[in-house]
Design a protein around this nucleic acid. Sequence first.
DNA 1: CCATGATACTCAATAAAGTGACTAATCACA
DNA 2: TGTGATTAGTCACTTTATTGAGTATCATGG
Lengths: 189, 189
Amino acid sequence: MALRHAVLAALLDEELSGYQLAKAFDMGVANFWHALPQQLYSELAKLEKQGLVTGREVVQDTRPNKRLFKVTEAGVAELERFAATDNKPSFIRDDLLVTVQAADHVDTEEVIARLTERAAFADAKIELFGGLLRRIRGDRSEEEFLRHGERIGPYLTCMRGLAFEQGNRDWCRQSAAILRERRTAHAQR
Amino acid sequence: MALRHAVLAALLDEELSGYQLAKAFDMGVANFWHALPQQLYSELAKLEKQGLVTGREVVQDTRPNKRLFKVTEAGVAELERFAATDNKPSFIRDDLLVTVQAADHVDTEEVIARLTERAAFADAKIELFGGLLRRIRGDRSEEEFLRHGERIGPYLTCMRGLAFEQGNRDWCRQSAAILRERRTAHAQR
DNA sequence: CCATGATACTCAATAAAGTGACTAATCACA
DNA sequence: TGTGATTAGTCACTTTATTGAGTATCATGG
């Protein structure tokens, strides 16, 4: 049950409404976890009941009212506890890998199509993360920021997200190229 | 619902018992998905009921009897359908990333400890995957195998698993180094 | 002035994944 | 001779995640 901790971690640096949080989790801005709006709303409700976050109503004229949430001291303590005990390894769980695993037994064109789509998706994410990193570090160089920046947690997770998508893109392109080559080699025989 | 497809993909190249399948999924040999034994047994039962796999009883003297499963034609057709339609992107979902996201607000020593543990875990997986790849390609070079090998699906997914873990290891080491540096810089002030 | 889309949520239901406890045999080792 | 590890599973239960449908207001564009 790490969604609760992901929510806490996301709320550490800014006070957010459930809606804003949902956008962040959906966009991949919160590249360290993924969740749908409904989960976040219910998680926020649980966290508030347990006193790990507090919400305050913000009355808006032009928009529906919203509730902004921030992490309480108890919430930070819970994250502290989490940081001290967690150890579950991460596993890739990816439809595309399942498809490629079966590549020798299914239509190669389809596999290549999926790989190409994913490479394009990865490219979009790479640009998104790249821009995000630049925005976070401002006019400082990456090295400078990592040495002396105030909050580097979000920067580090974003770096991992970027590298992950670069790995995805490279692998997708390479795999697609190999499958294409084998296809033509096969056809010429 | 891709576990069903992951199971089908895993059974394409060899006939396996639920137990063997569970070991494969647990070990990360099936590095494209992760599941617990109970899930696999129940998934196999469902797949058999739907005619996508068939099991045959193997009576053993020295060991408890087992049921070996293989994919039927309908099963391959299902994978074909899956390969032609799937498109769900993969998201990282990782406790460690949540911890690092909160790095600026929790005990740095603990975060460094988690990163170090994960780097060691990644190293172990890298060796495992490296050995697996060598075993699959035998005495052929990687390029030669990818060009002319019979079944490259499992090889490609294993390559992705390897690159993923290398990315993990590198990021963990770099992040831990940065946090250590900041800690000493801070202490000296 | 009417459709579309963004903001800001809620509720209900199902599907998937994970946890814990169990049976039962054989093998390896001390 | 009995302790633990390995093979080969099953059953029941809970927690998470996903799907789908609603509610309500306001802003923008044609």
